[in-house]
């Protein structure tokens, strides 16, 4: 679905992602875990060209994104939803208007827009909040609005950048349940960046461990929740789970 081929990204002479190759399979929930500064968020942002790589290729559904003209790229982005740690809702728009925004960008007809907005808000359980402003919502509710907004144009992939990192544990599992629904009910491929092992474990089919801008390994998480990976990576993941991490 998304393929990164030897992508590199450098910020002010500091290499953040170093010749990374990664393939996201259709329908999977793919976790990316690593300590802060490991380059996992940057890797995610390369997938919809929110950051342009200095070298390498990014493909979505076989299309080389870097070579698409601006207009086509914007079109492709409508098929790739994205949510963020700090939600990034427009605070001067109501819940309804926030979810409506991507539909307007996609030039969806007025009638269809209101249907879609209702569908998406119902999916995240916030249909009664349509007229409220983000400031009136809790963190978990804001993230659910952000998910509804990301789903509005019926994307095939949802990129999640630390979606639960500013939420309390109870709200975290609530958001994870919604993301699971997105994957299972809607069949949307999910890429999830997090530094919390519990979050990754509860949701992901595969997990990529990043360290120092490189992929340490990509492993399949067994349904039992025990990753079938070598001792080295287990040590690394344990460190992260305990909130430490080699660089923390």
């Amino acid at each position: 679905m998304i393929t990164l081929r030897t992508v590199s990204k450098t910020f002010s002479e500091q290499p953040v992602v170093k010749a990374v190759s990664l393939s996201i399979d259709p329908g999977e929930v793919h976790g990316i875990i690593g300590a802060s500064g490991a380059g996992k968020s940057t890797l995610l942002r390369l997938m919809n060209l929110l950051e342009r790589p200095d070298a390498g290729e990014v493909e979505f559904d076989g299309q080389p994104l870097m070579r698409l003209p601006e207009r086509r790229l914007r079109h492709v982005r409508q098929e790739i939803g994205m949510i963020f740690q700090h939600f990034h809702l427009v605070s001067n728009k109501t819940v309804e208007q926030n979810v409506d925004a991507p539909l307007r960008i996609a030039r969806v007809s007025k009638k269809e827009r209101s249907v879609r907005v209702n569908e998406c808000l119902r999916f995240v359980g916030l249909e009664s909040f349509a007229g409220k402003y983000p400031a009136e919502l809790s963190g978990g509710q804001k993230q659910r609005v952000a998910i509804a907004r990301a789903l509005a144009n019926g994307p095939r992939v949802l990129l999640c950048d630390e979606p639960t990192s500013s939420l309390d544990p109870g709200t975290t599992s609530e958001i994870l349940r919604v993301l699971q629904e997105v994957n299972r009910t809607l069949g949307v491929t999910v890429v999830l960046v997090s530094h919390e092992m519990d979050v990754i474990k509860s949701l992901c089919d595969r997990v990529t461990v990043m360290e120092d801008g490189e992929i340490r390994e990509t492993v399949r998480i067994e349904p039992a929740g025990i990753p079938s990976i070598d001792s080295d990576a287990i040590w690394f993941l344990t460190q992260l789970t305990e909130g430490g991490g080699p660089h923390a």
Partner: peptide
């Protein structure tokens, strides 16, 4: 907030939008 611009770009908005 910068993130609002990023969210807009990620949903396919043009600069004008």
């Amino acid at each position: 907030p910068r993130g609002v611009i990023e969210a807009a770009v990620s949903m396919g908005a043009s600069t004008r939008e």
